[in-house]
Amino acid sequence: MIVPDATQDAVAVADHYDELDPIYRRVWGDHVHHGLWATGRETPAEAVEALIDTVGDRLRLMSGEACVDIGCGYGSTARQLAATHGVSVTGFTLSAEQAHYASAHPVPGVDIHLRDWLANGLADGSANAAWAIESSEHMVDKPRFFAEAHRVLSPGGRLVVCAWLAETDAGGWKVRHLLEPICREGRLPSMGTREEYEAMATAAGFQIIGYEDVSARVARTWTICARRLVRTLLVDRETRRLALGARNRIFVLSIPRLILAYRTGAMRYGILTLSKAREAGTQREPGASMPQETP
Rank of each mutant, 00 (worst) to 15 (best):
G91C: 11
L253C: 07
E65F: 00
T273I: 03
A166Q: 06
V48Q: 15
A96S: 12
D141R: 00
A66L: 01
G186S: 14
A78C: 10
H177F: 13
A12H: 10
W117A: 02
M62D: 03
A10D: 15
I255G: 07
H85L: 07
S275M: 10
A277F: 04
E196I: 01
R263F: 08
L159T: 04
G71S: 04
C225G: 06
L178P: 06
L159I: 10
T294P: 02
A204E: 00
D30S: 11
W131T: 06
H100Y: 08
P108H: 04
N248S: 04
G29M: 07
R241E: 10
V87N: 02
P106Q: 08
V87R: 03
E238Y: 05
D30E: 15
D53C: 03
R268C: 08
H138W: 02
R241K: 11
T282C: 10
M139K: 01
S190V: 06
T223E: 14
E293D: 04
T232Q: 07
A201I: 03
L253S: 06
V230T: 05
D169H: 14
C162M: 00
G171M: 12
D236W: 08
V107H: 10
T7R: 10
K142C: 00
L229M: 04
I271Q: 10
A277M: 04
M62T: 04
R26K: 15
T294S: 06
E137L: 02
P295V: 14
G192D: 13
R184C: 05
L61W: 03
G91W: 15
A277I: 03
D69R: 02
M191R: 10
T264Q: 14
A96G: 09
